[in-house]
Design a protein around this nucleic acid. Sequence first.
DNA 1: GCAACTATAATTAGGAG
DNA 2: CCTCCTAATTATAGTTG
Lengths: 76, 76
Amino acid sequence: MSMGRAKLKMELIAKEKTRNTTYHKRKQGIIKKANEFSILCDVDTSIIIFPPNSNEPEIWPENPVIKSRKISLLTC
Amino acid sequence: MSMGRAKLKMELIAKEKTRNTTYHKRKQGIIKKANEFSILCDVDTSIIIFPPNSNEPEIWPENPVIKSRKISLLTC
DNA sequence: GCAACTATAATTAGGAG
DNA sequence: CCTCCTAATTATAGTTG
């Protein structure tokens, strides 16, 4: 029997496993929202995320809009 | 009497006034989500938005995390 | 044009398989 | 590690002041 969702304290999720699950769920949620935002309002939007155990940023969308906007994202 | 929220077709909002209202509401929504995501999962996140009638990007957070990550966002 | 409201849609925490 | 479930929380479309 499922318990449904519980309220979440707005602070770092201590348990690594839970934190990782939340990371993936919410990352997808934000990307979905950004995609809808772009379509509904005809706005170019880009999201840059630095995953927990990596210095390599995740950039959305894959072919960043920032390029066509004459903006460069450069690793130093 | 309020009608509550209606379902929205996933396509460009034709009416400028409605589109602008949605733009502001959803922009705040995405930023809130990104902020929560950063706190809950200890992840640096940055959002770049190009408003409809401007070439000047809106960057969140104001003091972009990307700077401390040795990433540069440069207008060409 | 804004802020507040509210009914409804959408997200998601925690669990189960 | 998934994917699915479901109740509860959260976001928000349309309206009103």
